[in-house]
Write a protein that binds this DNA or RNA. Structure first.
Lengths: 232, 232
DNA sequence: CTCACCGGAATTGTTGAACAATTCCCTGCC
DNA sequence: GGCAGGGAATTGTTCAACAATTCCGGTGAG
């Protein structure tokens, strides 16, 4: 089992804690954001154990404060808590992937079909698609993945709902965990850039029902593709 | 400002804490569930301050453990945390109500349109509608409200997604807070029982698009009605 | 050699006390 | 009545301790 201290053998205590003492409030929130970022960046890979002792000294906070941060992160299902065993970076399996796509197949087409489709939103989406296209042609895999996720985020934003945005962010974070858990996630997104283009085209044309149905088919295919890659 | 201790002047320490010492694990989780239940039951009304000192002694847990529970509840937006001021039972206003209906207008029609509509699910929904009807005729307002909420929960369940179920439960809990904040929530649900009947009828008939659109109109009306009641 | 068992060491779960920083609230002054 | 000042209460955070549990290495039996 991997442990967090493996990646940082030397303790980097107090790494840029918010200001000397003025930004006093909410250390726990700061800790949670740091851990969230490290996990999202792949610095902490799925399954890694987060030892209370090690992390608290490494971050320069007390064990109690760290536990408070853990409580918040557990609610976001970013980490998994096993009683008396400790907390681990969540490592999503096939069932989690299916759940991810259940959520996406519900809220993304709903946003496409019923969201408020302003001109700015449409232009923003078109520029994002363009970014994905150039990234693909340049072979910039990470940029392409980012652009793809950004597109689907802005799709959900069509609903205007912050809660759905939060849920989508959580889901995309979990997706990133899935990719981190795979030994290599090469060109998963490449197959889907074209379909994103078509999605935006249909939206531009005002054919929202076709856009929604196409998006559902897109998500179906992405799910089976991802499940296939995990299973093998 | 109301405070929690007003409702329980005499400290009821250790009120049915899970077993003598065997169910040791997860005191914080237990505390969170207790608070969640008390808030949902209207025992703790919106705006009530939750004092750390009072609550920790009243529940027989340490202040640190209580804070851990607070972290979890804040993530569910059941409580509001104001730095250096304390935590309060969330008191949703108009903007929160609008957000609630943004979420519902997205995920409920999506479930109706694209969810897996099994025979059992349909029968369950029909029995729930029946329950709401008899409750309305008996003047059992609380039962009717419960049945209505149960119906919409089972609508979301058509997606098969636990995350969406959790989100819906959170939203309905917030709705209950809205009602608790109103001096009296008399027959808000009565207007909508008929429309629930029609919703299920359309589902039974297999006309999912009409069901989805009807549900969206339903939610629009419910939102404006609720906003109107709050504003006055 | 494998495996079950056992005891110490490490880790988690939880508590209580302490202290700085902030906010609350009451009092006295104009 | 309004306003400044100054304890008192409350929050934010840390530290040290302890029970309960799990982990880990060795030991002995088969």
């Amino acid at each position: 089992m991997t442990t967090a201290e493996d990646t940082t053998p030397t303790a980097d205590a107090d790494r840029d804690r918010p200001a000397g003492s003025a930004e006093y409030a909410h250390t726990a929130g700061w800790v949670a954001s740091v851990l969230r970022a490290r996990i999202a960046a792949g610095d902490l890979t799925p399954g890694t154990k987060l030892s209370e002792q090690t992390l608290s000294t490494s971050l320069g906070v007390s064990r109690n404060t760290l536990r408070e941060a853990f409580s918040a992160l557990a609610g976001e299902s970013v980490i998994t808590r096993i009683p008396n065993r400790g907390v681990f970076v969540a490592s999503p399996g096939i069932e989690e992937v299916r759940e991810i796509y259940r959520v996406r197949r519900a809220i993304e087409p709903a946003a496409v079909l019923w969201g408020e489709l302003s001109a700015e939103a449409l232009e923003s989406m078109e520029s994002i698609v363009q970014r994905a296209l150039t990234a693909r042609d340049d072979g910039a895999v990470a940029d392409m993945a980012d652009a793809n996720q950004a597109l689907h985020s802005s799709v959900v934003d069509l609903t205007g709902s912050s809660s759905l945005r939060v849920l989508m962010d959580r889901v995309l974070a979990e997706m990133r965990l899935v990719f981190h858990a795979m030994t290599s996630a090469p060109d998963f997104h490449a197959h889907f850039v074209e379909r994103n283009v078509r999605l935006v085209e249909r939206l531009r044309a005002g054919d929202r029902l076709a856009a929604a149905e196409g998006l559902r088919a897109y998500l179906d295919d992405a799910e089976t593709e991802l499940v296939r890659r995990i299973s093998t």
